[in-house]
Each structure stands twice: as C-alpha cells, then as structure tokens.
Design a protein around this nucleic acid. Structure first.
Ligand code: MN
Ligand code: MN
Ligand code: MN
Ligand code: MN
Lengths: 217, 217
DNA sequence: TAAAATAATTAGACAAGACTAATTTTATAA
DNA sequence: TTATAAAATTAGTCTTGTCTAATTATTTTA
C-alpha cells in the first residue's frame, strides 16, 4: 500500500482532523509526529500528488475521500491490534500503543477483518476509542471531558484522550480505568484544578490538563 | 534493535547456513534476497562492523555468536506468527509466509514469549520447521528428503523446504500436508522423477525438485 | 598455464525521508 | 500601519538501502 511514513502522516492528519475546529498546519503535523516542519512540507507535497490530501493555505491540510478511507483503515488496524495485545497477550493498557504503532502497518487484504472476527468484533479499543468498522464507518467517539462537567455531576470514564504511558500509569495509580465512576466535587477557580471523588472514595485533586484527557459518558 | 533490512539479511544468512555444506558468498545472499551483489557487499561491510557477521574470502560469510542469537530470535518470531495466522486467524499454509515476513520485525522485548505462551508453546510451525525456544535453543530440523528414500520405503511428511505459494498450492492439490503418509514406489533413472503413493492411493509421479523439498520422518 | 567465464568489488547515482540554516510569507502587536 | 514575531518554504545536506556500469580477482576450462 503506502510507506510506513506515509501511513503515519495520514493517521496523524486524521487524528488532528478529529479534534476538530483547528486548522491543520504544517507546524501542527510536525508537532504531532515529532518531526521538523520542513520535512512535513515535503510530505505534504508527496501526499498531495498522490491525491490523499489537499492543502490550501487558508484551510490548511484536509484528507481527500481516498485519504480518509485509508487513514480510517490504519486506525482500525491500530485499535484492533491493541485489543489483541491486551486481551490475548496480557499486556497492560500503557504498553500496547507503541507496539500497535508498528503492527498497524502490516498490510494484508484480509488481516484486519480476520483479527476483528477473532476478537469478537470489539466496539472500542482498550483506551475507549471506537474501532472503525470493516466498511469504513466510524462510531462516534466520546467528546465530553471531565472539565465539561458541572460541580456535583457524576460520570463514568468512557475513554482517555492521551494514550501515553505516563498518563495511563498515573491513572492506574489513581485506580481509574474505563468504566470507573467519578464525581466532580469542586472546580478550583485559580487554575481550574478539579477536586474529584473516584469510585465514591475520598477526594483527590487533579489538574485541568488531566481533566481534559478524560472522556466521560 | 536493527533495521528491517539488517534483520532480513541476518535471517537470510542464517537460513543459508542451515542448508549447510555451502560457502555463503555475496552472490548466494543476493540470490536469496533478490538483491544485487553490489548491495550485498555494502551490507556485509555494515554487519561486519556491527560484529554480527564475519567475512572471510576463503570461508565466506559466517554469523558471529551475537549475530546467530539475533537471527534465531527473528526466525522464532517468524514461525510463531505463522502458527498464529494459521491457527487463530484461519489462513491457509500458503498465505502465511509473506505476512510473517513483516510481523517478524515487530520488536518488543516480551512479544514473542507472550505469543508463544498464547499459542501453547508450539514445537513446529505450519511448514514443519522447528520453532526456536525462548532461550535460543533450536530443535533439530528434519533433514531426510523424499529423494533420500529407497524404493518401497514408506514415510510421513514432516516438513516442507520450500514455503512458496506455488509449491504449497501444488501440495494442496495433491492432498499432501504435514503428516501425510507417502510410499516411494519407483525412481525413474532418466530424470530422477519419483513415483509415489499418497495416503495409500493410486500412484502419482513427481519431479526430483519436488522430492527435494519434502522432508520426511 | 593461458584464456575465458564467473564472482567480487568499487565508483557513482538515485529515491525516500529526515535534518539545519536561510529566506520568504503571514500574522500579531505596538 | 509599520515593526516584530511566528510560520512556511526553499536550498542544501545526510543516511539508508538500493541500483548500474566498470573494474579487479578468482575460478574454470581448454
Ligand atoms: Mn505507526
Ligand atoms: Mn488506543
Ligand atoms: Mn522479513
Ligand atoms: Mn514457516
């Protein structure tokens, strides 16, 4: 199909497009991938030539229908492999992302669908992200964060936005996982810190950044 | 660990060393990988610098202890993934090699061992090749071929040497798989063709090349 | 053993994908 | 609206891994 780099760019652009509202600039892509903007400009040219993206200085980078289709398939593979690694091989949720980052590039026409079937057609990956269907349909992701709640509200953790080890390990320490119940007790006006109760236990204070990375039901 | 190319070279050199007796020359490696000898000479230099191989014009290319250890691990991953693809995802034995060729490069410290456990510590891959153990020990591969038999001998198919689709599909057509019983009825002196009986059925004639690629018990 | 064939090596090129440094555009602020 | 800062782009370099063509070594064969 495509090179490893092309696929990583496509997926990165897709993810940036998901967190919508923002214009997708070379700089934004560079930051997301940890690359230099100059390199990104090169790749934008290449993907534009291949008709996978369109670049307009005003609108920024956008996926074409073909680019979107391909990006979704890569995300599908990534999330299915994550389920496999966690459920079948016993990895923890903070270990699977990087391995899936490699596995997602294995290109075989029927691999994703077979894996999907083998796993029992899971709806969500271990981080709560929806797994795109074989037909390219993507279930709507969760979008309400902990910071969106009003004081006193109770919610269920549905997904995490940040899937990095440091964040997931922090969650583990706080005994928070997908499905955990959280009540927002108080918002500190000074820095928007959140005072919360996890699974009905005594209160804990977490940062605004923390709250923005917890998606709730 | 290493680049994809380095790993493919290591594995290729290992496999050539297994079919022992022959000196491993740049040309031999080039043929095995479908590369140009000039490219191979470059890589020989690189792997020599990394102390993974030693190259002596008289003795040809040899793996160092470190190179051997690494090569065996790649082969282990390859064969474990093949078992996974066949047993868990329902692929046929002629479809799995190329996918495993990519999967073998996924580098994670514990992945192979977890997969091994998940699969129930299989001894052989779907082509009858022994799966190296986690400690690096490699069970002795089968070495007697159909052509080594005497007229009248009966044997059990233990492994196949060639794992390409055309060969495996031919075997499928003849209804030969791992475990099939074959009796050598006659050797044609002209071209060493073999007249055989598969699972006790009526006789079939196969070529010398065919016979050399069937390993028996 | 000399000629011919084959193998190995060197030299030089190229594509992909990254970088740095310099320059040009565009946006922001005084 | 001009000066300043930030972003985008260009130009040139580098590494990896490949190639072709030319050259040098080594084997075969006559
Ligand atoms: Mn990736
Ligand atoms: Mn995930
Ligand atoms: Mn490979
Ligand atoms: Mn195999």
């Amino acid at each position: 199909m495509y090179t490893l780099s092309e696929e990583n760019y496509l997926k990165s652009i897709y993810r940036l497009a998901q967190q919508n509202g923002f214009k997708i600039t070379p700089t934004a892509i560079a930051e997301a991938l940890g690359n230099n903007p100059a390199s990104v400009v090169d790749m934008i040219r290449k993907l534009t030539e291949k008709q996978l993206i369109a670049y307009d200085k005003k609108k920024g980078v956008e996926l074409t229908p073909q680019g979107l289709k391909d990006a979704v398939l890569i995300v599908r593979r990534h999330r299915l492999w994550e389920v496999f690694l966690l459920e079948k091989l016993g990895y923890h949720w903070d270990e699977i992302h990087d391995i899936a980052e490699e596995l997602e590039h294995i290109s075989d026409a029927t691999l994703a669908d077979r894996l999907d079937k083998f796993l029992g057609f899971p709806e969500y990956d271990p981080h709560g992200d929806p797994i795109p269907k074989a037909n390219g349909k993507v279930p709507k992701p969760y979008s309400v964060t902990l910071t969106d709640l009003k004081t006193g509200d109770t919610c269920r953790v549905a997904a995490v936005r940040d899937t990095s080890s440091p964040f997931l390990q922090y969650l583990q320490r706080l005994d928070i996982g997908i499905g955990t119940n959280i009540q927002l007790l108080e918002k500190i006006p000074f820095d928007n810190s959140l005072v919360i109760s996890i699974s009905g236990r005594e209160s804990t204070t977490v940062s605004q950044k923390f709250g923005e990375n917890i998606l709730v039901d």
